[in-house]
Design a protein around this nucleic acid. Structure first.
Length: 811
RNA sequence: GCCGCCGUAGACCAACCGGUAGAGUCAAUCGCCUUAAGAGCGACCAAGUGCGGGUUCGAAUCCCGCCGGCGGCACCA
């Protein structure tokens, strides 16, 4: 390439071409996806953002590769739906209102406007006509509709329960929103409160949620959801309480085979029977203990290494199997929220019970032995399998059989039977906050809790509310909202002043994208039949058990309501890793965001897109370190030069043809598996090779390289496409086909090893037979020299790769 | 404590089913070219794959045990 040529070529100035094409694409509606076309439909969904105000580098990391994958599918011949919206309800908007006196709606709108611009600047191929905004009544009315439907089906209910309360956010939280005893949002230790709240009955789907046979989801997510649901098999057994009351204590145990070793019982301090059964002499101490447990933060109460405290209620129960009377204690190591809130304590075969019994002088009895022979006394609980001992008629029974037999016996006696318990709790959806969906229920003195009529939806969130940050649900202070009439009796009634968890919004938003304006239902079913279920979903791993579990539940619930016809909302899931900066996940609330704007200004959006995809495997995440950004920018510069330079004349270049077709194969395969980093490396390799090539092979390769690059760096690809005489848009072109014959090597390097050590490398034609390869190896002078004085034991040949000659010393 | 993933040049990362440890990038070093300034081009340096065993003709890759990092679950009966 002559120097003069280079001089004449215009420089690559992203700022001059990127906004130009973004305007052009918007004007021509390039990204608007028709619902019907001659191509197969493909629904590519990526998790929508919370409108915090800025699309930061962490967002780019999530969205740019997803956009790339969606663009690739378009070029592969699919009619791809790639929508975007905003998860626009939530506590941050409200906190902004409290801190800065801006109305949440205004704050949210402003943020969305800015973020939409940033999405455009990224070059994302979003069909904005379908934008979903969850804080608009035309969206959230369908939350209310679903709530009412769930209510009819028994999938929504109101109950008093110990709930997680975040003192800082002043609201209750779902179990899924409590991470290690702390509020998922603000990290404040959570406390338990007894409150009457609304729940969605996700537990009704516990078993179905454990099945993943219809979906291609990462193992990691499946394991996390499975752990979270926490299914355990065992038995329910009732223990009658001694005395007149006729009460009984139901327990759940996974070890019914140990029942003869149940020497005492433990109730959770919150257990409803505690007040009833406590002996008068023990009352004061029990009340004190209950009170203390109630005020304890969850984090403290569930800390793994703590002294197991508890108090005796003075009451006794009868172990029906042994006929003995056993004391009933209360202790906070038993959780009201798991199983029945009560346990039969088997200190001989449970670590916690053992520890508790030692501490409080309770009897420890051996009823399981590894070999069926009693040890006499236990210095530690025996947790393993073996045979039942000192267990009446069951003595000698192997533990596995014993579990079944005891459960069956309990059933025969009418005091229980086999049962299954889950760790999963029902989804608490009430929130004592303003910026969310009003719960469509009113309370009437005559009729109690009454659902709002469907025709009265939406129950709109009132605009004028005072944000003090104190004193419970802000809606309580809006008389015009609270005071209403009862749909049943027409009398005065009060509206529910809580709003719904914002995870309700995101549990079904993917259906709304199809037509966010559709007024007759939450979704236009005709469109649903064209697009659903979602073919590909991408998003952060942090939603593995929150959003992704709720979304599956709502899908199944809507299916059972006759509204959907599939079992899983998203068939294929891929999670990007997390971008770490300053040792933590990048997020606005943590105050460690890196803004993409300065990089976009200097290098352009294409460079930043490419750089983020080049950092490493997408699913793995990465530390943010911008020092390598020059490298990908140089690459784009090189492509620019290649695109605008005369390739010169010459013969076809077999090596270049081969390099091209290998690159096509590699990039195509890598895009399918989301290995963006290696796809980019392959394109870099090709562009490096093209520097030294000329003629028609180079011209072809440059053409194809621009197509390969188009999903990654849409602006520069479009500019080069046009400068090279292309018409229409590069993004509607067909993805280059890969020719295996052209990609195949015709010459290989045959490596010759002797006893596993490389001794020689010889160039050879590809496709040699095993015999020929061995012959070639043995004929090599170096090899012959090395073999003198040794006998050949065997020869291992890997075609086109290696010949390993294994020898032994001649004896 | 239990379960899972990951440890490869100074840094980020490749290496299909076990078959030449290096594709790509940054940084370092040395050049070339151009310069008002971006920039461009080339060369070169660099690890034997966290540690210790094992299987194998052959191990970064498979197995076992440690060490380190990350994530999930965790008083769940």
């Amino acid at each position: 390439m002559a120097v003069e040529d280079k001089k004449r070529i215009e420089r690559y100035v992203p700022a001059d071409i990127e906004p130009k094409w973004e305007r052009e694409w918007a004007a021509s509606g390039l990204h608007n996806t028709p619902d019907e076309s001659d191509r197969p439909n493909f629904y590519f969904l990526t998790m929508f953002p919370y409108p915090s105000g800025d699309i930061h580098v962490g967002h780019w990391y999530a969205f740019a590769p997803a956009d790339c994958a969606a663009r690739h599918l378009r070029m592969r011949g699919y009619n791809v739906l790639f929508p975007m919206g905003f998860d626009a309800f939530g506590i941050n908007a409200e906190n902004a209102a409290i801190d800065r006196k801006i109305h949440p709606a205004v704050w949210t709108e402003k943020n969305m406007a800015h973020m939409r611009d940033q999405f455009r600047r990224m070059g994302a191929a979003i069909d904005w006509r379908r934008e979903v905004i969850t804080c608009y009544p035309e969206f959230y009315r369908w939350n209310q509709w679903m709530f009412l439907k769930f209510l009819e089906k028994g999938l929504a209910y109101r109950a008093e329960a110990p709930v997680n309360w975040c003192p800082r956010d002043e609201t209750v939280l779902a179990n899924e929103q409590v991470i290690a005893g702390r509020c998922e949002r603000c990290d404040t230790p959570v406390v338990k409160r007894q409150m009457t709240q609304w729940f969605f009955r996700i537990t009704a789907y516990a078993d179905e949620l454990l099945r993943f046979d219809e979906v291609d989801w990462p193992e990691r997510v499946r394991v996390m959801q499975t752990n979270w649901i926490g299914r355990s098999e065992g038995a329910d057994i009732a223990f009658p309480v001694e005395g007149e009351s006729g009460e009984e204590i139901r327990v759940f145990t996974t070890r019914p085979d140990t029942i003869y070793g149940a020497t005492f019982m433990v109730l959770a301090p919150e257990h409803p029977l505690v007040a009833k059964i406590t002996a008068p002499s023990r009352r004061a101490e029990v009340d004190r203990y209950v009170e203390r447990a109630r005020n304890m933060e969850e984090i403290e109460r569930t800390a793994a290494e703590r002294v197991r405290t508890g108090v005796d209620t003075g009451a006794f129960a009868r172990n029906v199997f042994t006929g003995e009377r056993i004391p009933i204690w209360i202790a906070d190591y038993v959780l009201q929220t798991y199983g029945t809130g009560a346990i039969m304590a088997v200190p001989g075969h449970d670590e916690r019970d053992f520890d508790f019994a030692k501490r409080h002088g309770l009897e420890i009895r051996e009823v399981i032995s590894p070999d069926g022979i009693e040890q006499g006394s236990l210095s530690a609980p025996y947790l393993g399998e073996g045979r039942m001992v000192r267990s009446g008629p069951f003595s000698g029974t192997p533990t596995a059989d014993g579990r079944r037999a005891v459960a069956e016996e309990a059933k025969r006696r009418g005091i229980g039977g086999p049962s299954v318990t889950y760790r999963l709790r029902d989804w608490l959806i009430s929130r004592q906050r303003y910026w969310g969906t009003p719960i469509p229920v009113v309370y009437c003195d005559t009729d109690g809790a009454v659902p709002v009529r469907y025709e009265d939806l939406p129950i709109a969130l009132p605009r004028d509310v005072e944000f003090t940050g104190r004193g419970g649900s802000p809606l309580a202070h809006v008389p015009s909202f609270v005071n209403t009439t009862c749909p049943k009796c027409g009398g005065p009634a009060r509206r529910d002043i809580d709003t719904m968890d914002t995870f309700v919004d995101s549990s079904w938003y993917m259906y709304r994208y199809l037509d966010p304006k559709f007024a007759a239902a939450f979704m236009d079913k005709d469109l649903g039949r064209k697009w659903l279920p979602v073919h590909q979903y991408t998003g952060g791993i942090e939603h593995a058990i929150l959003h992704l579990l709720y979304m599956r539940f709502v899908c199944k619930a809507l299916r059972d309501l006759g509204e959907l016809w599939f079992d899983e909302p998203a068939l294929r899931l891929r999670n990007q890793g997390t971008i770490i900066f300053g040792g933590r996940k990048m997020s606005k609330s943590r105050g460690n965001v890196q803004t993409p704007d300065e990089y976009v200004a200097i290098y352009g959006a294409d460079t930043l897109r490419l750089f983020l995809m080049f950092l490493g495997p997408w699913t793995q995440g990465s530390d943010w370190d911008a020092s390598g950004i020059e490298g990908v920018h140089r690459f784009l510069n090189r492509v620019w030069m290649l695109g605008l330079t005369d390739p010169g004349a010459g013969p076809r270049d077999r090596a270049i043809d081969r390099a091209l077709h290998r690159t096509i194969a590699k990039v195509t395969a890598d895009l399918e598996t989301y290995h963006f980093n290696t796809a980019i490396a392959a394109m870099m390799e090709l562009s490096n090779a093209l520097q030294h090539a000329s003629g028609p092979s180079r011209a072809d390769a440059v053409d194809k390289l621009i197509l390969l690059l188009a999903p990654f760096a849409p602006h520069i690809a479009e500019e080069l496409w046009h400068r090279r005489g292309g018409t229409g848009t590069v993004h509607r072109q067909t993805w280059p086909a890969y020719d295996a014959t052209l990609a195949a090597a015709d010459e290989i390097t045959l490596v010759i090893q002797i006893d596993g050590k490389v001794r020689e490398r010889i160039p050879a034609p590809a496709g040699m037979s095993i015999a020929r390869a061995e012959e070639l190896a043995r004929a090599n002078p170096k090899v012959r020299a090395a073999l003198t004085g040794r006998d050949v034991d065997r020869v291992v040949v890997v075609p086109d790769r290696i010949v390993n000659i294994v020898t032994r010393r001649r004896s």
